[in-house]
Design a protein around this nucleic acid. Sequence first.
DNA 1: GAGCACTGC
Length: 883
Amino acid sequence: MSNSLSETGKRRAKRTFEVTKKDEGTTSTEPSSVNWEEDQDVKSNDFHLEPKRSRYDPNRTFSFTKHCSVSGDLKEELLEPEKRIIKNHGQTWPSGQLTSSNNLSCVPENEAKDTSYSTSNVEPCTSSKAEVILNQRNVKERNKVNRQHMWEEQQLRNAMAKKNDHPDDIVVEGSEKYDYVFDTDAMIDYTNDDGDLLPEEKLQYETRLEEALKTEETRILTIQESRKLLPVHQYRDELLQEIKKHQVLIIMGETGSGKTTQLPQYLVEDGYTNQGEFQIAITQPRRVAATSVAARVADEMNVVLGKEVGYQIRFEDKTTPNKTILKYMTDGMLLREFLADSKLSRYSCIMIDEAHERTLATDILIGLLKEILPQRPTLKLLISSATMNAKKFSEFFDDCPIFNVPGRRYPVDIHYTLQPEANYIHAAITTIFQIHTTQALPGDILVFLTGQEEIERTKVKLEEIMSKLGSRTRQMLITPIYANLPQEQQLKIFQKTPENTRKVVLATNIAETSLTIDGIKYVIDPGFVKENSYIPSTGMSQLLTVPCSRASVDQRAGRAGRVGPGKCFRIFTKWSYSHELELMPKPEIARTNLSNTVLLLLSLGVTDLIKFPLMDKPSIPTLRKSLENLYILGALNSKGAITRLGKMMCEFPCEPEFAKVLYTAATHEKCQGVLEECLTIVSMLHETSSLFIGQKRDAAASIISEVESDHILYLEIFNQWRTSKFSRSWCQDHKIQFKTMVRVRNIRNQLFRCSEKVGLVEKNDQARMKVSNAAGYINGRIVRCFISGFPMNIVQLGSTGYHTMGKSSGGLNVNVHPSSILFSNYKEKAQRPSKYVLYQQLMLTSKEFIRDCLAISKEEWLIEMVPQIFKGLIGDKINMGRK
DNA sequence: GAGCACTGC
């Protein structure tokens, strides 16, 4: 085993050298280099590229250049191995938290000097399976089992002593020994070549190793054992005591501490479920987290998923009544449970996980929970949060205690640019090539960009440069990832990187929290993010590129340290990090439309919205706008109290505007009988951003030749798909994402069941018998239903194009987005623009765009459906025209 | 003639 390892090491070392040499003189095709400053707080442990003199100067800066000029510092590195190890050792692992998964940290300090040299020079991620397994063993056991290992160490010590005797032996430039020292894997090679093992000793060694491996594997597979290895384990009793003492406890812990999986089990063991009488709920901001964690905990507890341990997310309830004691769920799901049981009486304990992410649902949940705590003195509340805002949570819950559980992560070196870079994409590309040409494989690169367009552009640039470089560098696998990328292409990032290739992942902040990519060693972070915010005065959203918060860039950096020590290159200055960046991202509640939330709170009996406890209060204009919207929809009466219609809207898992559309479709005398159609359109509208593969118009043309609105196109798409028996091939033929359509179908089914529950289906069926169902009539009725749901989203054609209506937001000029069917109808087919258009989204990107548009062909429908708004508006206009 | 970050019920 060691032999093959050393062979690889040798080969790799050789290769690295050659590439470095060959690359000289290719500067013309290369972008210029970026200068980097290293973070003062975190010292570099194995970065070979700094100038020699400043090696241990914490304030140093260095230039990170493409050409791997191997200078004297390499020698120094070799001569001072212990210094290196000690630095490594004390880096990020809090003392007392040393665990067996890192072979550096688990060695006691005095032992580290002697033993770690060999292991520290074998990158954990390049090791063979056996190495990996052995590395997970704690050191005492390792020494006991493997005397051969000690022998190896002795050989290494001897080797080092020899080297120190003749320091001048190490000549770097052009030396034959160069590749020997350049790649640290070669150290293993030395041990074995120098070894004079007798054949029987060798055999003995190998048999022992085999045995050790086997027992090790079984040990690792023992779930109960591995549970004990998690950092949270040693705090078990202390935690349970604190929970007993206090009603609310903030758990401050980083990823990898095991709190999400272990803490709920401790609570069960401590009797909080009282033999199945009570449940414990653990909320997560994302569905995948809820399902995957539940599966793992079921495994650990050795029960069937869905019985004692289950999960509940939208469209999927994997719990068993009277049996499930641990329930993992999305935060939105628990929020909706308040509607059925406002005391949450079936739970003895609720854990809000990842609360620092501050999703809207989390914020509302903890507000509601704070209110019911006095009424439920036995209810325990655990809030788990990252370090940065644990204190804020504690203050919110009347200074409740904070319990710190350290995490488990590898160290990540942070590098900053010396000056701000004007073009961060250019700088990112340069950095990618700096890493690619100078750093050993394996070690994939993750680059954080802001959006789809930027990612695609960067991908093209990278491919251009790679084709110019040709065979002079190693292969590069460029994989984009963003939420709207079709599923099949998304899966590419999880494929194993081929031999002698470096994977470069170009990602949006989907890679920040939502998904984890193995093998990432380098992170490049320009420090920007696209942020959506809501402007209540116009009802418009804007999507702006803004600097990330410090919490976000730290989270991104952490992505480099999941499999082993990593490096993060930030394309902004250290000064900017500490002076310009916000500490935390803006919570969702401060930048979103709150109609839905306000309606929910009102239906739960919260009448004073201003006094409702929230960590960050939404702005008064946002609240006022929400109340106004709800009043126009008829969800509130003139006194601000919730109406029957409002209560019904709450039942629907969608925006109240959509619920109003469905209500109108089933009940309004002018447009009854189109509930089916409206259910389809409403469901489709939830998923339009990831519906098409490629251009929307191409897909549209293959489905329907003439269509007057996006809404009718969506209806047609779903109907044709249904006719094809929901087939995958139909989707492929028409460039539609199958996965998205499946989601649409799920949403539609759920909304249908909901409509059934509140009696809308029955009313609709009765009406349907009486009215004409010719296509033209149906379309007119659909338009009217949407007018009643979105009376504020209607624009009027004026001399300068479309502008918004209404008293407060009137007069804002907007553009039909080029992705809309209306755009091509007007511009390409030269159809006469409709005088009024209803839109689903008004968003400011490069211009004010309206998306998903519905042409309103008859002015009188406006007055007919929402007279309280349009009688005045349209009447006024006519009068003004006469003057 | 643009180019939408990410979640959730």
